[in-house]
Structures are given as C-alpha cells and as structure tokens.
C-alpha cells in the first residue's frame, strides 16, 4: 500500500515536471515568432507607443503586410523562387536518382571512389568554398543569371543521393533482371520501372531539398546581385537591412510572409519531413 502511493506520488511529480518542461520548451520555441506576429499587426503609432508583447488593437490590420510585400518586391520574389524551385528540384532529383541507380545497381571500377568523392565533398564547408566558386561563376559569366544559379543549386547533395541509394537497396534486383530478359534496356528499367517505384523517396527529397532551396539566402545574395530582377523570397528580406532597419512592424510582416509557405508545407507534410530527416541522417 505504502509503496504504491509512493510510486504514485513519484509518477505524479514526474508528470508535472514533464509537462512543465514540454510547455516551457514549446513556449520558448514559439515566443520569438509569436512576438513577430503580434508586431506585424500593429499600426506605426501603436508600434511606437506600446510594449512589443502587448496585443495589437486589431487583428485585421493588414497594411504592414501589403507595404512589406510591395517594398520588398515580393511578387517578383515569389515568381523567381517558384521558378528556381521547380527547375532545381526537377534537375537534382532526376540526376540524383540516376546517379544512385548507377551506383547501386552496377559494379564497375571507380564506384567506391565516386561515393567517397561525394562524401568528401560534403565535408567541405560551403561558405568557404564560395570564395573560389565565385571566381568560377564569374569567369563563366554566371553572376546575375537565373540559369547559372539554378545549375549551381542543382549540385547533387549527398543526403538526397543516400536517400535514393537506400531506397534502391530495398527494391529487388530480380525486378530489373526480369525486365532485361524481356528485352528492356537499362535506360528503360530506370525510367519505366524504377522511377515510378521511387515515388516516396522522391517526395522526401523534394520536401527536404525544396525547403533548403526556398530558404537559401547566402548564395542567392552572392550570385543574384541585381535585386530588381533576380530577387528571391529569401533575399527579398535584405531590403529591410538598410534604412528600414528598425521599422519592425514592416520587417515582422515581411518575415511572416516568407515563413508562411514553409508553415503550410510543414503542416501538410509533417510526417514526410520527419521521416525524410531521419532517413537522411542515418546514413549521411
């Protein structure tokens, strides 16, 4: 009896502690973003006169969003970003899957070497590489060129290759062999049989890489310098660094506009994002 109540008290305390920490963790995670939302709905006078954590007088005041959208040229930014994402995702998924197919299905001298070459490439810190990549892009006349930036972003990353290789490992080779027996070429095997089976892996890579491309601001800022023509959603925010540097009612509105697509994708595809991350990390 006594032991039982003791255990119960212990469990009760643990439960309280558990939920307390969870709520605290969630609170800290959303606090910076929520404060942004609050500020984005305030008029200029309200922003100047009230505390940042005081709720806005109206949740229907959308002027800041409209202003931010216009000032940062976000219409064009969304168009550019979507175009970049479509091309980059299509290109990198196709090439990534083809590479994974070759590396997984064929034994040839250099197979291991190529795998290691990709692994080693992932060790090189990206920011440092841009010092000399910039020079190469410059000599290829690919600065301020949308196609040039797309090709750069297509550079196949190790994680998506690993996700594809892992997936190929789980597809029986017997399937390929029987197709070959029936007179199918190796190209046919890939495009007609394996690629359709690869759909779940493609969705995973699409989400992971898509979020990465959408959020990329460093290389976009470096290689798409003409902000009047080649602004992307991420780089459109640089507009707020200059003289607008402390007009947080606009800045917050801009931040929220850029965040919305990520939020929608997250709510819609939570499961794929989680499993994609886990898959990518286990091997990578």
């Amino acid at each position: 009896m006594n032991i039982n109540t003791k255990a119960k008290v212990k469990r009760g305390i643990w439960n309280i502690f558990k939920y307390f920490t969870l709520i605290l963790g969630a609170f800290i995670s959303v606090l910076p973003l929520v404060s942004c939302v609050i500020t984005a709905f305030k008029t200029e006078e309200e922003y100047a006169s009230t505390n940042v954590m005081q709720l806005p007088s109206s949740w229907l005041y959308f002027d800041n969003f409209i202003q931010a959208f216009k000032q940062a040229n976000m219409g064009l930014a969304f168009r550019n970003s979507i175009l970049i994402m479509v091309v980059v995702l299509f290109g990198s998924i196709l090439t990534g899957a083809m590479l994974a197919y070759v590396l997984n299905r064929f034994k040839f001298p250099g197979n291991g070497l190529i795998r290691n070459a990709f692994l080693f490439a992932s060790l090189l810190p990206g920011i440092a590489m841009q010092v000399s990549v910039y020079q190469i892009m410059y000599s290829l006349h690919l600065i301020n060129s949308l196609p040039g930036y797309m090709i750069l972003m297509m550079g196949t990353d190790v994680i998506s290759i690993y996700i594809f290789i892992q997936f190929f490992e789980n597809i029986s080779v017997a399937l390929d062999e029987s197709a070959i027996m029936d007179g199918c070429t190796y190209f046919g095997v890939f495009f007609r049989i394996l690629l359709p089976l690869l759909k779940p892996a493609i969705v995973t890579v699409m989400i992971l890489k898509g979020v990465g491309v959408y959020n990329e601001y460093y290389t976009a800022n470096l290689y798409l310098q003409d902000k009047n023509k080649f602004v992307t959603v991420a780089t459109s925010l640089f507009k707020f660094t200059g003289p607008l540097g402390n007009q947080y009612n606009y800045i917050c509105a801009g931040v929220i506009i850029t965040m919305l697509p990520a939020l929608i994708v997250f709510i819609a595809c939570q499961k794929q994002i989680y499993s994609g991350l886990t898959q990518g990390a286990v091997k990578g």
Binding site: C36, T258, M259
Partner: peptide
Amino acid sequence: FPFLVCGIAVGFVFKFF
C-alpha cells in the same frame, strides 16, 4: 518548426527579440 525558418528571417527575428 524553427528549423524550417529561413536563415535571414531568423536573423531579423532575433535582432528584434
């Protein structure tokens, strides 16, 4: 969710924060 927020947006959010 913070993992999915764009880096430059994180910058503004924390400058404000």
